[in-house]
Amino acid sequence: MKSHRKKTLGIILFIAAGLSVAIGLSLYALSSNIDLFYTPTQVAAGEVTPGQRIRVGGMVKEGSVKHSEEQLQVNFITTDYAHDVDVQYSGILPDLFREGQGIVAEGSMTPEGQFVASRVLAKHDENYMSVEVKAAMDAAERQRVMGQIQEQGQSQGNYQ
C-alpha cells in the first residue's frame, strides 16, 4: 500500500472512530437525563430537590385552574391521577391549555412543595379526530356511565 493511501485510510478511521465515540458518549450522557419530564408520582416520591430546574408533566386537574385578576398569573394542579402537583405560573399559555389537557411545566419546586413554572407547554396525545367524532364519543361515554349508575341503582333497589 502506498504511503499516501495509508495516510488517508488513517484519517478515515480517525473520523469514523471519533464520530462514533462522540455519538456514543452523547447518547450515554442523555440516557440518564433524556426523560423530558418527571411525573407527579416521581415528585411525590421525593426524586426532585427544591430549587433544581426540572420539568413536570401531567394532566391539568378539572376545576383546579384559577386565573388571578390583576396579572397574567395562573394557578392549577397537575396530576397523574395518583399524585398532584400545585403549579404557579405567570405568562402566556399555549393554545391547547385547558382542564383535562396534558401539559409539561418547566421550573422548580419551592421548599413548601409548590412548583413555580417559568414555561408551560401543552402535550397532546396521538389521537386525531373531528369535533363531531369527539362529541359523539363523549356522548357515548356519558351514556355508558349513566347506564352503569342506573344499573347500580336498580341492584341496590333489589336489596331493599
Binding site: 442523555l30 433524556i34 426523560d35 423530558l36 402566556i92 399559555l93 399555549p94 393554545d95 391547547l96 391549555f97 409539561v104 414555561r119 408551560v120 407547554l121 401543552a122 402535550k123 397532546h124
Partner: peptide, 14 residues
C-alpha cells in the same frame, strides 16, 4: 402554537 414552543430538548427532537 400547539405545544407552546418551537423547540424542546426532547428525545425525539434531539
Amino acid at each position: 402554537p400547539i405545544w407552546g414552543t418551537w423547540w424542546a430538548w426532547d428525545a425525539r427532537l434531539t
